[in-house]
Amino acid sequence: ESRPVVKPGKGEHPLQFNYCFWFSRRTPGKQTSSSSYDQNLKNIGTFASVEQFFANYSHIARPGDLSGHSDYHLFKEGVRPMWEDDANKNGGKWIVRLKKGLASRCWENLVFAMIGEQFMVGEEICGAVISIRYQEDILSLWNRTAHDQQTTSRIRDTLKRILNLPPNTIMEYKKHSESLSDNSSF
């Protein structure tokens, strides 16, 4: 890798981890496979500080303003937003289905909590995805170790608190190994 290492600038507030924003959009009519998914992923920026985060975040469209079948991914630098990545292969994700109109606010709450280290689960968080779909939008938060129930419960509780969603909102945990075997994808 010859890419320059991203570092906080002078006077900026460093983050615990560097992160990358990714964007993907499903091409209508194309077969979904792991390789086409990978090809559709576009890295749209890496940041190491709060200020660099806003320089990226403020210049990309809010998820609620996107149309069609689009996803934003925010992952720690070095982790590709794919099940097969070493950081993800034993992991899973919390899935929250959102009524239309909530995506931008919920995504912002989640992203702020993630870069601000609000989850308090060590190195467990891998990244987050907001998936814009026709009927509803889907927020997911990925962690490294799907079988660690103490960690996944803690993530769920923090997620509930920071999203501030109605108490009847359904949250579902899914291991990536299950997603691989049933070939489900949003």
């Binding site: 507030h13 200020e51 709450n109």
Partner: peptide, 21 residues
């Protein structure tokens, strides 16, 4: 070690900083 934690309200303040543009 120590973790770098930022609360939401602090991030909102940084959003308006000239460095963040």
């Amino acid at each position: 070690g120590t973790r770098i934690v930022y609360e939401r309200h602090f991030l909102m303040q940084c959003r308006n900083s000239p460095l963040a543009k």
